[in-house]
Amino acid sequence: MAAGGDHGSPDSYRSPLASRYASPEMCFVFSDRYKFRTWRQLWLWLAEAEQTLGLPITDEQIQEMKSNLENIDFKMAAEEEKRLRHDVMAHVHTFGHCCPKAAGIIHLGATSCYVGDNTDLIILRNALDLLLPKLARVISRLADFAKERASLPTLGFTHFQPAQLTTVGKRCCLWIQDLCMDLQNLKRVRDDLRFRGVKGTTGTQASFLQLFEGDDHKVEQLDKMVTEKAGFKRAFIITGQTYTRKVDIEVLSVLASLGASVHKICTDIRLLANLKEMEEPFEKQQIGSSAMPYKRNPMRSERCCSLARHLMTLVMDPLQTASVQWFERTLDDSANRRICLAEAFLTADTILNTLQNISEGLVVYPKVIERRIRQELPFMATENIIMAMVKAGGSRQDCHEKIRVLSQQAASVVKQEGGDNDLIERIQVDAYFSPIHSQLDHLLDPSSFTGRASQQVQRFLEEEVYPLLKPYESVMKVKAELCL
């Protein structure tokens, strides 16, 4: 049975990233139509530049190519590739079939990587351009969430054990800070992308030097003109047959890092959902379990974690691919890159769409948070109580021993009897502590235990987050809708 299948058929496997999760716009960027249309555009740009620099290419040939950029006979191309065992030459023939007058000058002087690699770089750039505003929107939604809850005390956790208090907004800023680093890295790697350009079979530009009869300047002009037509500021000066596969490492490393950030955020949300302090959106008709109707599973956060793990592992592909590119190139890269580049971007696209949807509907339960604080705060307040007693004339050592005994009794009630923490009640009825009984409410005010959390939130948002989001103001209103 021949390899390949009808990918629109229910009898043929289709990647869930495309069929179930990723956005239509990201799927289109990695589609065959987008790819092969870009090949034709690159052939047109090459012909236009070659004509401008004096090669015998007519206006009629150029116009014929322009008129057929979208006229792609995919069936013919597939048949040609089956016959020739070469995808680029299959599309040269297919393009030439609908451009008979231009057929002889299509791909003039070029090698397969002229269309293959340059198209990949265009796709990487455009895919990054799709991700950047999506990530900015996630940051914006979380920034709104953090600002609104900047002063809401909550129990902090280290080692997932109760620690000092923080605020809900401050905790959210930990998430935002990681995503801001990801946004900066995505922008950097996007701006650092260079075009492969017009380089020939081993990167020496020998074929173009021959076409222009040894004119170095025209060869350099050709490279520059096509690079500018493709919208790049610069091209690699040095290439082998391909652009260095280190570029793929750079791009997928940034995406993998984004995956790590999203995994951490969504894990926190899942843990908070278990504590009943916070939940992701839950639709009115949504079913959490087929057997347990009360369940409210954090399905979206779980999906993000599941896909983020996949995204983090994909960076190993370009690392290994770059390491086995012998001399000017081997074909070890080809099949692998067809999979890992598309999957990385479709996965990143999915987790950003999902995280935006989550961040637009996060639900906080202040009463649950308050109750958990009441359970733990008495123990945390013991040092403040000791200091207040010393100020009232008591002995630190005597007070410490009193607190120690009462704390152990209260802990026994919590752990052995399943009761509430009654340390404060014990202190309130103990005559030894009568000098500070009137101060206990103040000493137990949760806001006095959150330090500068709310001020940190305000400063972080104003100095770091809002300036970073400013270039994306025009796209901030787009909502994230999930079908599944």
Rank of each mutant, 00 (worst) to 15 (best):
A2S: 14
A3R: 13
S19L: 06
R20K: 06
M26F: 04
F30Y: 09
F30E: 02
L42P: 02
W45E: 10
E50T: 09
L55Q: 15
I57G: 03
D59P: 10
E60G: 12
Q61K: 07
I62V: 12
E64A: 13
A77S: 14
E80P: 03
E80F: 07
E81V: 00
R83A: 13
V88S: 09
A90Y: 05
H93Q: 15
H93W: 14
T94S: 13
C98Y: 14
P100H: 08
P100S: 12
P100F: 07
A102N: 06
I105E: 06
H107D: 00
L108W: 15
L108T: 12
Y114F: 10
G116M: 06
G116K: 01
D120M: 07
D120F: 08
L121K: 08
L130F: 11
A136T: 15
D144I: 15
D144E: 15
K147Y: 13
A150R: 12
T154G: 05
L155Y: 03
T158E: 00
Q164G: 02
K170N: 03
W175Q: 06
D178K: 05
L179N: 02
D182S: 05
Q184T: 14
N185F: 07
N185R: 11
R188P: 00
D192K: 09
D192W: 07
G197F: 00
G200S: 12
A206P: 05
Q210L: 07
Q210M: 07
L211E: 04
F212Y: 07
E213L: 15
D215V: 09
D216I: 07
D216H: 11
L222G: 03
L222A: 08
D223I: 00
M225H: 12
T227F: 07
T227K: 08
A230V: 06
K233Q: 08
A235N: 14
T239G: 01
T242W: 00
V251M: 08
L255D: 04
L255S: 06
G259F: 00
A260R: 04
K264V: 04
C266H: 11
T267W: 01
T267H: 10
T267N: 10
I269L: 07
I269T: 09
K276G: 09
E280F: 02
E283R: 07
Q285A: 09
Q285S: 13
G288I: 06
R303F: 00
C305D: 05
A308R: 02
R309N: 08
R309T: 08
D317G: 13
P318C: 09
T330Q: 02
L331G: 04
D333P: 03
A344N: 00
L346G: 09
D349W: 05
N357P: 02
L362N: 04
L362R: 04
V363D: 06
K367I: 05
K367D: 04
I369N: 09
R372V: 03
R374D: 07
Q375W: 05
E376W: 05
F379T: 05
E383T: 03
N384K: 06
I385C: 08
I385F: 09
I385S: 04
I386T: 12
A388N: 03
M389L: 08
R396Y: 06
Q397C: 06
Q397M: 08
D398W: 08
C399A: 15
C399N: 07
R404E: 02
Q409Y: 07
V413H: 15
G419R: 14
D420Q: 06
N421P: 13
R426M: 09
I427E: 03
I427C: 08
V429W: 11
D430M: 09
A431W: 09
A431L: 10
Y432Q: 08
F433K: 03
F433V: 05
P435K: 09
L443T: 04
P446Y: 04
S448G: 15
F449R: 07
Q456R: 04
L461H: 00
E464M: 06
V465A: 10
P467N: 09
C483H: 11
